[in-house]
């Protein structure tokens, strides 16, 4: 029985210790985001806090949570108190609206540019000197080339990779659905390791020395080159790729309950200002602001970009056709293949 008392004391101690972990400062925002935006929001949160204080607002502390885009969306659906979500694809935010009714269905219309304050695209990361002479998508299906990409079923980033390849095949002369499927099937035959997340794939490619090409977000490729060795890797930009639009939104039910709507909305709007755009560009996200884009034109090579809406009819359709169970991606890996 003594032990029961000990437990009770311990439990009380835990609660006492846990309380200060939860709250301090005047306004607390929680930004639930996906993996590659860590560095971006670290800088941005500091800039915004300064800006908001300068405007006579409260002291804002923005806490960050990062993880796979889908996992993060699920956490919000299951009750993680996110004031804002900044995820990899609109589909994941749609699910927050649909499954948990935390945001209205028209959320993507509320901020300019499909609620995507910055964009990115899919590029190739190759080993220095490009020993396999990989120039464009069709080099990826050569039998001597090994391609590293995460699994589209578990990684949001990998879905962009897959759709970019599909779109490329579709847009070739005489391209059609059947040819696109054949192309993507061949491409995935060249994939020796399917990691579950984007950063896992980067590690497999960079640290373990697997594969010749890594398919990655442009910002991830830049980061990998800068962090892990300019002398070891280089970026190859294909002739055409997909316009990746990572969207942001306020989580209405949460901000209304917490009374943080005003500052949360400002937090997202600030992303669209020149200052916010500049931070995005510095972290290798393509800015949508014309002036800032012009300023960073040297960094971002021109690529012909197609969008998910005009090529695939939006995320819902793409998800259902390609990535749902029994969808095209599963057929590629079907039994007997």
């Amino acid at each position: 029985m003594k032990s029961l008392k000990t437990i009770a004391t311990l439990a009380a101690a835990v609660l006492a210790l846990a309380a200060p972990l939860a709250a301090h400062a005047e306004v607390n925002l929680l930004n639930v985001s996906y993996d590659p935006t860590r560095e971006l929001y670290q800088d941005y949160n500091a800039a915004f806090a300064k800006y908001w204080k300068g405007k006579g607002g409260d002291t804002v502390t923005v806490k960050q949570s990062h993880g796979g885009s889908g996992k993060q969306a699920r956490a919000v659906i299951d009750g993680l108190d996110a004031d804002v979500v900044t995820l990899a694809l609109a589909y994941d935010i749609d699910e927050i609206g649909e499954k948990a009714k935390l945001i209205p269905a028209n959320w993507q219309k509320r901020l300019p540019h499909n609620s995507s304050p910055y964009t990115s695209t899919i590029v190739f990361l190759v080993r220095k000197g490009n020993p396999k002479k990989v120039r464009d998508w069709n080099d990826l299906i050569r039998p001597d080339v090994k391609v590293i990409t995460p699994n589209p079923k578990t990684s949001g980033g990998a879905r962009w990779n897959y759709l970019a390849a599909w779109g490329y095949a579709l847009k070739q002369k005489g391209g059609n659905e059947a040819k696109a499927k054949e192309f993507v099937t061949k491409l995935f035959k060249n994939v020796p390791v399917l990691d579950s997340g984007a950063r896992g794939s980067t590690t497999t490619f960079v640290q373990r020395g697997q594969g010749d090409v890594l398919l990655a977000w442009e910002n991830e490729a830049f980061l990998a080159v800068n962090e892990l060795g300019k002398d070891k890797f280089e970026i190859v930009v294909p002739s055409v790729s997909i316009l990746a639009e990572p969207p942001v939104t306020v989580v209405d039910k949460v901000v209304d309950r917490k009374g943080t709507r005003k500052v949360a909305e400002e937090y997202l709007k600030y992303l669209y200002t020149p200052a916010g755009q500049e931070i995005a560009a510095k972290h290798y996200y393509r800015p949508i602001d014309k002036n800032i884009a012009a300023k960073y034109a040297k960094v971002f090579p021109k690529v012909k970009l197609f969008t998910i809406d005009d090529t695939f009819g939006g995320w819902k359709a793409a998800q259902k056709k390609h990535f749902a169970d029994g969808g095209v991606f599963d057929q590629i890996y079907g039994p007997g293949k």
Binding site: G70, K153, T154, L194
Partner: peptide, 20 residues
């Protein structure tokens, strides 16, 4: 994690979760 070869069951559970 290659399907049919080196994919473990817990990974498939995660895959299902990713599709909500």
């Amino acid at each position: 994690n290659m399907p049919m070869v080196s994919e473990i069951t817990p990974l498939l559970i995660i895959t299902k979760l990713e599709q909500y």
